[in-house]
Simulated assay, not measured.
Amino acid sequence: MTHVRPGAPAPNRPGVLLPGRELAVGWTLMVLIAVLAWAATVGQARGMGTGPGSRGMALPLFLALWVVMMAAMMLPSVAPVALTWVRGIGRRSAGPARALRTAEFVSGYLLAWTGFGLLVYGALTVTGRLVEAAPGAARWIGAGAFLLAGLQQFGPLKRVCLRHCRNPMFQLARYARYRRWAKDLRVGAHHGLYCVGCCWGLMIVMIPLGVMNVAAMAAVAAVIFLEKLWRQGPWLAWAVGLVFLVLAALAPFQDWLLPGLDPGPPMGEMEMRRMG
């Protein structure tokens, strides 16, 4: 029998990660998944460009691409919550079981964003048809999207959900009382709904900026990360809200702010360019 004196670190038993190593492995996996998701998103965006509507994608294809985009944009900011949950369950789960439960948490989180993706697809379909029928409507659609996003940054839903995302420990303690069936999936989905409530305004600006606009994706992902993890995150949320309100005022007069609503040249002109 091995005796460990009080205060000494626990031995490194096979299959059990010490807290520091566990966090390092968890962060490495999260970063790796996010990097792969960014690579896939950038590769897909190169052949699609920015423009109104869903770019001809059917709903299943759009949702598949949307999930990859959410993994790229959201996993860095949700990683601390996921890893905190994993450390809590790690005391009762071996390595493979812990990895499976982590995957369930992330799957539930992305499931919540998939539901929001359905709404985004519907909005893209409607706005695409409006711009096709009346190109001048793009300015007012863009202004409306920026205005709605700006107001959401100052609203009570943003404040409540951002507070949860910045300090989820109380909610994680409540999750511990969930029933065992699909527990980690439901915990991830529940936390994902808070993130949707916190960030939906930031996401709808992708309609005027372009859903496949990689630069806009990176900027929105950076704002989300800083809002949730930076000490001055709530002040940043207000500053971004002011920026959106300014863009809403400028959008009707500045077409360059709306690349995602630009219908592009007519098909005949595109053919002439391709032939030339």
Rank of each mutant, 00 (worst) to 15 (best):
F154Q: 08
P168K: 04
G115N: 06
A133L: 08
G155C: 13
A176C: 00
A112M: 00
Q171N: 06
R163F: 04
Q152G: 12
P135C: 04
L162D: 09
R129W: 02
G144W: 09
A145M: 15
R129G: 12
W181D: 11
A123W: 03
W181I: 08
L130Y: 01
A133M: 01
H164R: 15
P135E: 07
A134D: 11
A149M: 06
A149G: 12
A143Q: 05
G150D: 12
G136E: 14
R129D: 11
G136R: 15
M169I: 10
G150R: 10
L110G: 05
A123K: 02
M169L: 14
L148N: 08
V120E: 10
L110V: 04
T114P: 06
G115W: 05
A112G: 10
N167G: 13
Y121F: 15
L148G: 14
V131L: 09
G144E: 05
G128W: 02
Y109H: 04
V160Y: 06
V131Q: 04
P135W: 08
L118N: 06
G136D: 14
S107W: 03
V120N: 00
G136M: 11
A176S: 09
F116D: 04
T127M: 03
G117K: 05
A173I: 03
Q171L: 15
R174P: 01
L162E: 07
R159Q: 11
Y178E: 02
G128K: 05
F154T: 08
R163G: 13
G122A: 14
V160P: 00
L172P: 02
G122I: 01
Q153G: 09
G136I: 05
L147N: 14
F116T: 04
